[in-house]
Write a protein that binds this DNA or RNA. Sequence first.
DNA 1: TCTAACATACAGACAAGTATGTATGTTAAT
DNA 2: ATTAACATACATACTTGTCTGTATGTTAGA
Lengths: 224, 224
Amino acid sequence: MLDGHKRKRRFRDPGRTRERLLQAAFREVHRSGFRSAGIDTILAATNVTKGALYYHFDSKEALGYAIVEEIIAKLVRDGWLRPLLSDGQPIDILIGIVRRIPARPEDIRAGCPLLNLAQEMSPLDEQFRKRLERIFLSWQEGVATLLRKGQSQGTVRRNLNPDEAASFLIAMVEGYGSLAKNAQDAKVWEVGIRNIVEWLRSLRAPRQSRRGGRRATNRVQGKG
Amino acid sequence: MLDGHKRKRRFRDPGRTRERLLQAAFREVHRSGFRSAGIDTILAATNVTKGALYYHFDSKEALGYAIVEEIIAKLVRDGWLRPLLSDGQPIDILIGIVRRIPARPEDIRAGCPLLNLAQEMSPLDEQFRKRLERIFLSWQEGVATLLRKGQSQGTVRRNLNPDEAASFLIAMVEGYGSLAKNAQDAKVWEVGIRNIVEWLRSLRAPRQSRRGGRRATNRVQGKG
DNA sequence: TCTAACATACAGACAAGTATGTATGTTAAT
DNA sequence: ATTAACATACATACTTGTCTGTATGTTAGA
């Protein structure tokens, strides 16, 4: 135990202070948006003072960029990119991921942190935009790669463009997220998930072209 | 010409002043978001003074509500609800509407005014939320009604839920709009429209169940 | 028709609060 | 003992909204 990571809960633990500031800032930004997020609110939530915050972050913008790169990027990695590498059929993996998206009332109300920041800041701040776009691209690329894998395995239709299908999926997830957020109603989200899942099923290759036989509960492409 | 509506372009024209304020406020809110929209910016854009603005609107919130009810609601009426009543096959009508959504660079950059306000204000201000929800509901209801008409005419698949399909369409439109806004790239939007149109085509009833014969350019449901 | 009385539609300075960021002092750790 | 890691007080800018004043329009009465 060479590093003093938590050997006694020291008075000064700059790494921890920084992390607590980041987490509190993320929550505040998630609730109020970046521009309306108050520095004082973050300080009150952490019992950290302004001097300490501005010691760790040069400005409010720098704090915002850190939220994107360290917290939101991690959410996408943990919620999507890593699960995308699971074992199993690509479509099943995607359905599992989509179904596991958090849907507690507070998540619905506040909306997707990534989309919220993108909506608010992308037209106003190119630095924000670039960082957010990187995350969107990694998300899309991850899904597209899995779909390509499914195509080469024969479980995903070959007549679809993996990049566009990935983008389609992301647009739907974020679109339904927005509708549910505005309705402030988790049911809107649940219905959305059902329809996204149905669409994902429609991406399966028809039975005869598959290698492993699989019972065809494949519903029609439209909607139930 | 009993009313003095425009008999000489008077110095005082309260109706026009109010309308100019509304339009300028809409543009400023569209660009900057509601909370970051500056009253002074609106005043500078219109050469109207603060006293005049607060004569016509009780508060900044009241101005925001008026933007929703008078401007954004009208955009949805003109861009969707009225066109939905056109002659022709429902799916064709929807495709036409979707294709006619403005896609100039400035529209892409700023994003959909309805979604922007909903994203920003719905979790924070119930009065905003309710007004915006009314618009979303009228939008969804209009699309659903047209789909039902198509079902009874036999041009739209009967195994779909019109309300959910309408919601699906709206989620896609707004989702792609968000992605394009974040990418600041009209191409993202164009690709989105292509995919939305393909999905809309997949809602057509199969040929044999239709009344009027129509050449079947119906592509597969997935993606090109 | 002329005018007194009043209402409407503004103008512009100012108040009050809130925001971020800085300057400087203090304490803990190496 | 030096410096990193804070604490505190304050400067500065910007926000919405109010307040008083004024010019114009409208109406009622003689």
